[in-house]
Write a protein that binds this DNA or RNA. Structure first.
Lengths: 227, 227
DNA sequence: TATTGTATGATTGGATCCAATCATACAATA
DNA sequence: TATTGTATGATTGGATCCAATCATACAATA
């Protein structure tokens, strides 16, 4: 498979588990923008010391989920229309580029993995799985599309962007409708990808991201002017 | 000024100082790719405990300067032609885009700041300042060009890329020649930028990055096939 | 001789504790 | 009454210490 080998079993440190926990709370909206994250509160909640909490917060800062100020602690980063544009424009540059490179290197095994990933998302929507699982499968599909590009550095950037993008997607008023549209677009993307139609795949991916961004930004603009 | 306000005085934590120290050692080539960074060794060297060293290493991992494996510590990430392509292609996507957005928002004050930044680089080259300072001024110019885009998220990505790009630039066989070329290109970039010629500035910036990337990649390819 | 098991020191991950900083309320002063 | 100074609890940053894991050398076994 033309993808990056990842370790088959990787031990989870307490730091990694805490990072996942806090990230899930932020992405899920339990901790909204501006929310102060107290190290001691998280530590007590999870039954660990403050050290892994602090180390987790440093990682989340790198992902743009929190902002840390010296001696003042971590605050969940604020969402805004401007930030969404910043974020989705970066995705609009990187993802179509990576998908073009990916198609150049893709193997049949990769394509099988992508199809499997697409079907898993489809099945999860049909079952009405919870938003967290649906998000995970959505990003897994995007990752599977881009992974054969063999660009681990750019992939790491894109992965970080997904975490923040997820926060915006979860804000959508009509998530079911958005997901149905996304799934249909995933099917079209996969068809073009399977044919190795580079230009068409890139075009569809650009539209896929731009449409979602457009929805989110206009919704945010409405709420921002209302406020 | 249409740029992001940064705090006038920000306290340095020990963690931040350690991160700067290790980053400088990696970028300067003292710690080459594959070098094991021992927490205790750095701690002893700087007269601090291992806690800030570990936290610094986490930040450097996010920047792609080190790779951390659970219970095995941090290793300086390896440089390669493939990685250089990955890195410089990402810059080639993001920077020209950001410079276009920047010109759209730029103020006279910004332009004055950019000119000052360009002249500082020029003067440092004329004085024969050490590579570390020359690098800092080079990136400061690039940052000044892009900053008026008001895209803090994309800017953070680009800043992280600069750290790794610097490792490659320091490898160049003829740094003086490369810097003279870069300076000349900076002048042309600045002229187009000042005229607010968006297309020409983007074109020049693309060429500026692509030329440097081309040099570095072909040099790496030569040494990789030689080995 | 090649492979597997075991012991030991080195190293990392995490808990606990102390010092420094921050936020807040309240007192003092003009 | 508005501003400045001071005291106190809350919180973070960092040092020290302990437990878990890893790497290595060496012994045991087929």
């Amino acid at each position: 498979m033309a993808t990056i080998d990842k370790p088959l079993l990787q031990r989870q440190t307490v730091t990694a588990m805490v990072a996942e926990y806090i990230a899930a709370r932020i992405i899920g909206g339990d901790y909204p923008g501006g929310h102060q994250i107290r190290q001691e509160a998280i530590a007590a909640e999870l039954g660990v010391s403050r050290i892994p909490v602090r180390e987790a917060l440093l990682q989340l800062e790198a992902d743009g989920l929190v902002v840390i100020r010296t001696h003042r602690g971590a605050v969940v980063s604020e969402l805004s229309a401007d930030d969404a544009i910043d974020l989705f424009d970066a995705r609009l540059l990187l993802e179509p580029f990576l998908v073009e490179k990916a198609i150049g290197h893709v193997t049949d095994q990769d394509i099988a993995a992508i199809e499997k990933s697409m079907r898993a998302y489809e099945a999860a929507i049909a079952r009405g799985d919870d938003p967290k699982d649906l998000s995970r499968l959505n990003w897994a599909f995007h990752t599977a599309l881009l992974e054969p590009s063999m660009r681990p550095r750019s992939m790491a950037v894109v992965q970080a962007l997904y975490n923040s993008a997820d926060r915006y997607l979860r804000l959508q008023i009509e998530p079911a409708k958005a997901r149905a549209k996304a799934l249909q677009e995933h099917r079209e993307l996969f068809e073009a990808y399977r044919r190795k139609d580079i230009a068409e795949t890139a075009r569809l991916l650009r539209k896929h991201i731009a449409d979602a961004a457009g929805e989110i930004v206009s919704q945010l603009r409405r709420s921002e002017t209302a406020a």
